[in-house]
Simulated scan of single mutants.
Amino acid sequence: MGLLNAFKLSLLLPKKKAVYQLNRVKTKDFLLYILLLHVLFALPNGVSLIVDFMKSEDLDNTLLLAGFLYPLLVIMTGTIIISLLAMVGVLVRWMTKRKLVYQLLWKMAMYACTYPVILYVISSLLHQTTTIEYIGLLLLFLIIFTKMILTYPQMKK
């Protein structure tokens, strides 16, 4: 139930109530949510990778690459990208003088990625994704993430 609740709340972002409730999600559910989002993000490329390798009839390499190495690569790069996006949040936090720590910004960045990831998957499954679409998804993330940061109070002087 916690994973579905986290997903439902992340779809309500950047509403203030949803932002605060997401910070109360249990760590177990948050980690499952991260994994689910990474799997969803890897789905379009993973399917095409499996289809390409099945055509080559090299089942051992297909299993190794599609079953183990590709998901590991997606999780590692996804974690690095979320960390970089959280650093953008540190910059926004500093500019707006908000009272937030990096760990919370990392968690918020992960939840703010929900809409862009869903739109990316839909777009990738329908057609080849263009650079303009990537920029649009990044802007969507930045808008949601900035609004989430702005829901927190400013630091007292």
Rank of each mutant, 00 (worst) to 15 (best):
A42Y: 06
K16T: 09
K15F: 06
S56P: 05
L4M: 12
Y70V: 08
F145S: 03
L22G: 02
N45S: 12
V121Y: 01
K157W: 10
Q128E: 13
Q154I: 14
I118P: 03
M148I: 14
V101S: 03
N5S: 14
F53I: 04
V90M: 13
L37F: 01
W94I: 11
V19Q: 00
A109G: 01
L12P: 10
K26W: 02
D29I: 07
T129L: 05
V39F: 13
V19W: 04
D60V: 15
I118L: 10
I82Q: 09
L104D: 12
L69H: 09
F145I: 06
L32G: 10
I81F: 07
S83W: 14
D58H: 14
T129E: 01
N23C: 04
T96H: 14
L63Y: 03
L36W: 02
M87R: 11
L139A: 10
V90C: 14
L69W: 11
H38C: 10
L69V: 15
L138G: 12
M95D: 05
I82D: 04
V19R: 04
L137N: 08
L73G: 13
I143E: 03
V121D: 02
V101W: 02
H38T: 02
L35A: 13
T114Q: 07
A18F: 01
L32V: 09
N61R: 14
F68R: 08
T151V: 10
V47C: 02
P71S: 07
L73T: 10
L138K: 03
G136Q: 11
K107N: 06
P14N: 05
L72V: 14
M54G: 11
K147F: 11
W94T: 12
L65W: 11
T27M: 09
V88G: 03
I132F: 13
A6Y: 06
S10M: 03
L140S: 04
K26H: 01
A109M: 11
Q128C: 00
S124V: 12
T129Q: 14
Y134K: 11
K8T: 15
Y134Q: 15
V39H: 05
T27Q: 12
N45F: 14
K99H: 08
L36H: 02
V39S: 13
N23M: 11
S123I: 11
L40P: 07
M148L: 00
T129G: 10
L126M: 11
L105R: 00
A109V: 03
L59A: 14
L138T: 12
Y70W: 01
T146E: 01
M108I: 09
Y115K: 13
I81E: 01
M108C: 03
G89F: 05
Q103F: 13
L137S: 01
P44F: 08
M54C: 07
G67K: 05
C113T: 12
G46K: 02
A6D: 08
I149A: 03
T77A: 09
L105F: 03
D52V: 04
K17Y: 07
P14G: 07
L138P: 07
L84Y: 10
K17R: 15
H38F: 15
Y111W: 00
C113D: 14
M54V: 08
T129R: 05
L9S: 06
L100W: 04
L43I: 10
A42H: 03
A42L: 13
K28L: 07
L125I: 12
Q21G: 04
L126V: 13
V74C: 03
L140G: 05
